[in-house]
Amino acid sequence: MTQTMRWFGPSDPVTLAAIRQAGATEVVTALHDIPNGSVWPRDTIAARKAMIAEAGLGWTVVESLPVHDDLKTRGPGWDRYIDAYRRSLTNLAAEGITVVTYNFMPLLDWTRTDLAWPLPDGARALRFEWEAVAAYDIHILQRPGAERDYRPALVEAAARRFAAMDDAARTTLEATILAGLPGAEESFTSAQFRDAIANYAGIDADRLRANLIAFLDAVCPHAEALGIRMVVHPDDPPFPIFGLPRVVSTEADVAALFDAVPNPANGLCFCTGSFGVRADNDLPGMVRRLGSRIGFLHLRSVDREGGDTAFHEAEHLRGDAKMAAVVAAVHDVSRGEGRSIPMRPDHGHQMLDDLGRRTNPGYSLLGRMRGLAELRGLELGIAHAAAG
């Protein structure tokens, strides 16, 4: 695997020098200051690549080139935003980018309910809890009909949870869900979010999937001609939320996209954390069956708490991901195809000196450096054993 770390640009508290010292050879990044739907200028891409190269690192994977919501809803700006997306791909290819990550989740990027959940060892992790989501959805967002999306017992528990929260706790929960995490290009107030959800009225999973297929049909031939592989990031979390559908949550979802758009530029960002939230996703088996389509790897693990009630980010080699089996499958795919798949340690605990520093939630240096070291050692051990 090609070892990378995510970098959020010059304002990231984690420097390029630190990433290089952690052992990565490349960064994955994006032009986060450019609004969704705008063309990424070639000179801006070139300047960012030069900055990265000066630090002794490479940049061949973009994470992410956002898909405007008019493309997800098949809205009035469809033609304009498709053209802008293709132009951005052209400019990225001209500067040596070969993999472009994107997601097709409506409105929100990825959602958690706690960004600093304390672990027994004193470190902090990201956490998602359905009771907190329901408390926000029903009582703060006040989305029409929200109660119908939750089991009666959960509705009652959410009401008790909301009643016990003071104003500060309610504000924190709202900010955690809405502000998004680093890399999210949109943020909302609850009122704006509620209005934006209304734009998806009538868009169920079948229609959203059809819109994704239309997007891929429109961009993949252009990407293929440029030598770029488009890789879709799975839904995070991998189930409907706030009444919004999800269509990249299971192996069947991904296989349907590949069947509908067989173009080789139509690929997958395989995220063991997102897929791993669902116990019905067989992660090592998915790597072996989908391996030829995987262009980028996010390696992290989650602990599923109490079935489907909550999950939190685990240590990279623990939790429910079966990481040793996943990396063994990646090794076999890489060896069989003669390529090195870009990988990054996804998320990481806030720990040690980073507990007292400003960090992007999930993207502190030391937790990810620990994950990268563990994954590097795991891969070397597997390769050594395979060599006999």
Results as ranks from 00 to 15, higher is better:
residue 1 M to D: 07
residue 3 Q to L: 14
residue 5 M to R: 12
residue 10 P to G: 14
residue 17 A to P: 05
residue 26 E to Y: 13
residue 26 E to W: 11
residue 27 V to C: 09
residue 34 I to Q: 08
residue 34 I to F: 05
residue 37 G to S: 10
residue 51 M to N: 06
residue 51 M to H: 11
residue 52 I to G: 06
residue 53 A to K: 12
residue 56 G to R: 07
residue 63 E to G: 02
residue 64 S to R: 00
residue 72 K to D: 03
residue 72 K to F: 05
residue 73 T to K: 09
residue 75 G to P: 09
residue 76 P to I: 05
residue 81 Y to P: 01
residue 85 Y to H: 14
residue 88 S to L: 04
residue 92 L to V: 05
residue 96 G to S: 11
residue 97 I to H: 01
residue 99 V to L: 03
residue 105 M to S: 12
residue 110 W to M: 12
residue 113 T to D: 11
residue 114 D to A: 14
residue 115 L to K: 09
residue 119 L to S: 07
residue 121 D to P: 11
residue 131 E to P: 01
residue 142 Q to N: 13
residue 144 P to C: 07
residue 144 P to R: 05
residue 147 E to V: 11
residue 159 A to K: 14
residue 169 A to H: 06
residue 177 I to H: 02
residue 178 L to V: 10
residue 179 A to E: 13
residue 194 R to N: 13
residue 194 R to T: 12
residue 198 A to M: 10
residue 210 A to F: 00
residue 217 D to F: 00
residue 221 P to K: 01
residue 222 H to F: 00
residue 223 A to Y: 00
residue 223 A to Q: 01
residue 224 E to S: 07
residue 234 P to T: 11
residue 240 P to R: 08
residue 259 D to A: 14
residue 263 N to W: 00
residue 271 C to F: 03
residue 290 L to V: 08
residue 291 G to H: 08
residue 294 I to G: 03
residue 297 L to A: 02
residue 298 H to C: 06
residue 298 H to F: 08
residue 308 D to V: 11
residue 312 H to E: 08
residue 313 E to S: 09
residue 315 E to L: 12
residue 322 K to G: 12
residue 326 V to H: 07
residue 330 V to F: 11
residue 337 E to W: 09
residue 339 R to P: 01
residue 341 I to K: 05
residue 342 P to N: 10
residue 344 R to I: 14
residue 349 H to A: 09
residue 352 L to K: 06
residue 354 D to L: 02
residue 356 G to N: 14
residue 357 R to V: 05
residue 358 R to C: 04
residue 363 Y to P: 01
residue 364 S to Q: 08
residue 368 R to S: 11
residue 377 G to E: 13
residue 383 A to E: 13
